[in-house]
Design a protein around this nucleic acid. Structure first.
Lengths: 126, 126
DNA sequence: ACCAGATCGTAAGGCTACCTGAATAATTCT
DNA sequence: AGAATTATTCAGGTAGCCTTACGATCTGGT
């Protein structure tokens, strides 16, 4: 799924986005999200996510704002371009899942999703 | 699945085996397998698999024999220890799948396997 | 009001698991 | 005989993580 997503993202012109950037795109919220939160949710260190955020900032997909609620913190937020790319990614994943459903059945794909979510929830730690 | 497998392998004393070693364990055959074949099947370069094989040889899990059918080639074969560790890994994976079946149903896990195998076959290239 | 300790982001350096490319010796195929 | 293949070696590079350390800021207890 991830391979296919990125192949298609590249075809759509988003050829700078790599799988590793997912730790930001997956968990970022419209109003902005703190680095620490992204790190926690993705199961990576703050440093790792920080590098990804640097990268995405350099590429113009996210920006950093001071967090009004905490002087230490910054909010990472999608730029317009970032939001568009994310929307494209969401659309593509929907398309891929639809293709899978066509080929293997809606029920099978629903089961796939359920079991996969369950087993990854049960044993999160890498 | 892979994470859990290695966690349990470590608990059973096989704490030198890492996920990267899978490219050998997954495709090696009882009578021995050529490096080139392992590389092809795992989708890695011969150099990469060669390093893994060196590692497993050093650790005593595999040995290299001259291939009687081709003087250029060598057969990579599991040692007794390698075969035992592989058998343990197979057993553990069976146990994990059985646990999944217990929790989510035999049918669901069967479907999971089928769909996963199908979609990864359709689009193999990383 | 203050200080100790937690938390936020960042910096610096290291590691694993791969890759490309080039070269070589031995052997096999055409 | 010449071309291809097998394994190996060496050199160098990269992505995607990690650990350790640190300064800046916030928070809770006194």
């Amino acid at each position: 799924m991830v391979n296919d997503l990125h192949r298609r993202l590249h075809e759509q012109g988003y050829d700078e986005i790599r799988p590793a950037h997912g730790c930001v795109f997956r968990f970022i919220e419209p109003t902005g999200t703190r680095l620490t939160v992204l790190a926690e949710q993705s199961g990576l260190t703050k440093q790792a996510v920080g590098e990804v955020a640097d990268d995405l900032e350099r590429l113009g997909y996210v920006e950093r704002l001071a967090d009004p609620l905490d002087g230490r913190a910054k909010l990472i937020r999608l730029t317009d371009r970032g939001a568009r790319s994310r929307a494209t990614a969401v659309r593509i994943m929907g398309e891929i899942e639809a293709e899978w459903a066509e080929r293997h059945g809606e029920d099978a794909v629903a089961t796939l999703r359920e079991v996969l979510e369950a087993v990854t929830d049960e044993r999160v730690p890498a």
